[in-house]
């Protein structure tokens, strides 16, 4: 079997890289955290990896807008190697700030890394402030390799800018008809609702997006923060140890590489 190798991209202000590395290692991927400067210096570095993760944090302080400065850096320095990575059939995961970066480079939705972001963006929460809380997520697609179809999962969000918006309703319709919506925020029973069920006011309760190949996923919630039962917010009152929902995403990624490379 192929050795699964994952890279977690670091940059100034990225701060979820260690726990993301741990989650990938738990899933069985040999994982390396690497600063973006190293890849800009040597663009062939990405070639040995099959999974790239853009982790959470506040890249460059989220100055101007969340993920914007890092997205700008990627557009101007790393467009080609990342496009090649995608074209080679490899996997891209963006979590929280990483999701914001994927959207602001234009990589999500629709795998468009050579152009700029156009019709979808992520902006300030309706509440106007950063919030850390747990949310339920219902998968919206069968085609994204990271997602177990039909399995609702429970994960924490921690962001101030997580509201997904589209330029107009046509763009939204297109996201839906092309199956690009990966996850929606729902309540425990799987129903959409207002705040705090939808914690940031995201259009159509969108919590995550994928691309047409299903090999790119971006989401606001943090799967790397629920990889052990004791991370569940009220594990101490559950009779059975809760399943670590966040691991499904990492496990699926590793399994996909093992089966396809």
């Amino acid at each position: 079997m192929v050795e699964v190798k994952a890279i977690v991209l670091r940059a100034a202000g990225i701060n979820c890289d260690m726990e993301t590395e741990y989650a990938l290692e738990l899933a069985g991927a040999k994982t390396q955290r690497m600063h973006i400067n190293r890849i800009i210096e040597d663009k062939t570095l990405l070639e040995e990896f099959q999974i790239i993760v853009f982790p959470g944090g506040f890249s460059y302080g989220d100055d101007v807008a969340a993920g914007k400065i890092l997205a700008n850096q990627i557009i101007h320095h790393l467009s080609e190697p990342i496009q090649k990575f995608i074209d080679d059939g490899k996997l891209v995961l963006g979590i929280c700030n990483g999701f914001q970066v994927l959207v602001k480079t234009g990589i999500l939705p629709g795998n468009n890394s050579t152009k700029h972001q156009e019709e979808t963006t992520i902006t300030y929460n309706d509440s106007g402030k950063f919030e850390d809380r747990w949310v339920y997520l219902a998968p919206q697609t069968n085609k994204c390799i990271f997602i177990e179809p039909g399995r609702q999962i429970y994960l924490p969000i921690a962001h101030g800018e997580g509201k997904v918006v589209t330029k107009d309703s046509a763009t939204l319709d297109k996201l839906k008809s092309e199956g690009l919506v990966a996850f929606k925020y729902v309540d425990k029973n799987g129903q959409e609702g207002d705040y705090p069920i939808n914690p940031n006011g995201s259009t159509d309760s969108i919590a995550g997006l994928t691309d047409t190949t299903g090999r790119i996923l971006g989401l606001m919630p943090h799967p790397e923060r629920f990889v052990r039962p004791t991370q569940h917010p009220h594990w101490s009152r559950l009779k059975e140890k809760p399943a670590s929902d966040g691991m499904t995403i990492f496990n699926n990624a590793v399994k996909y590489i093992q089966e396809n490379f």
């Binding site: 989650a23 959470g56 990889v227 101490s236």
Partner: peptide, 15 residues
């Protein structure tokens, strides 16, 4: 409390 990220680094046990 919710305005603070109390879970980053993945180590929270009793929040």
């Amino acid at each position: 409390i919710r305005q603070y990220d109390h879970e980053v680094q993945g180590g929270s046990v009793v929040k």
